[in-house]
Design a protein around this nucleic acid. Structure first.
Lengths: 165, 165
DNA sequence: TTGAAAATGAAATTCATTTTCAAATAACGC
DNA sequence: GCGTTATTTGAAAATGAATTTCATTTTCAA
């Protein structure tokens, strides 16, 4: 069953990749870690998509560029990217951790189709305001929030009615 | 380290328990399953708290009433309760599935302290409106949403400043 | 009461995630 | 450049929650 994808094209420009790489390198230096070819390759594969990637999916992409890079390294690098703000985890509630790149993107949320797994992004500034407001009310220093909507997309609804099981 | 709890008292009255039991029994009959003492015991333990329980935590509570009931049965019964609307899953993003009872409760959301694991509930009708609105805009038939806020509660902030590591 | 279908619970399995460890590599000082 | 040393790497093992299996027990409709 094919998954609908909103976009396939590489998403950010060459200079943005360079900038992201700089951010990673500075982060590595700051916490006393080393710059490696693997980490750079993984970062570039990661930036080269707009999807919400699981570690496994990113590993497969990375292997096209360098088949010797193992799952573990991808897993660990993804954590590094999250640490320095280049990636952020999005939980689609199906037991698999996904990441998306956060670099130069507006804060947004996701609506996920529970049948095909596809998703759309939407923008909703109200939600961030709510975070502030609720945090103030209960004296929490808030750091982040999650907001996902679940449902069935138009395509899947049509498929359903076409061939009722 | 003690976790702060908002309330400890049993949360619903005797007749509500009876009503919930009826709902479960009707659901079992409808889908051709059988009524058992274990399922009733598990339901009662479940209703007897307001916390957000993991399968494991509920299993421990259930064992106080009947030590012979196993983890598997609790796990399966929790799914049944979710099926008939008596329970609903809440994901706090720590890899453990939790359930809360949904019986006669207003829709609400959670703010979770990332240090002590404590949480407060809050009500925010705006969020449900958003679900409708976004669903309409992208032609999704929405079924539910999740909204959680993460941060650090007042107590934990005070503890932090008292003894800076 | 009885027999077929379902439930039970211990144990085994699954599956994503995380850790371990020995070999390879990066980066610092010389 | 060169050696040293701490870090990185990736395969494999470990972990841990969720789920399934299976032999036994129980429910319930006839």
């Amino acid at each position: 069953m094919l998954q609908k994808r909103i976009d396939d094209q590489p998403s950010i420009s060459r200079e943005m990749v360079r900038e992201a790489q700089d951010i990673l390198h500075r982060h590595l230096k700051r916490v006393g870690l080393k710059q490696t070819a693997q980490r750079d390759t993984i970062l570039r594969s990661f930036l080269d998509t707009r999807d919400h990637l699981s570690t496994d999916e990113l590993h497969r992409l990375v292997q096209k560029k360098d088949p010797s890079i193992g799952y573990t390294t991808v897993y660990r690098t993804l954590k590094l990217l999250a640490e320095c703000g280049l990636a952020s985890e999005v939980a689609f509630h199906d037991g698999i951790a996904r990441y998306e790149h956060q670099y130069n993107r507006r804060s947004h949320h996701h609506m996920v189709c529970t049948q095909c797994g596809g998703s759309v992004e939407f923008f909703s500034p109200e939600v961030s305001q709510l975070e502030q407001e609720i945090g103030r009310r209960y004296h929490y220093a808030t750091t982040r929030h999650t907001f996902q909507i679940y449902g069935v997309c138009e395509d899947c609804r049509n498929k359903n009615s076409a061939q009722p099981a």
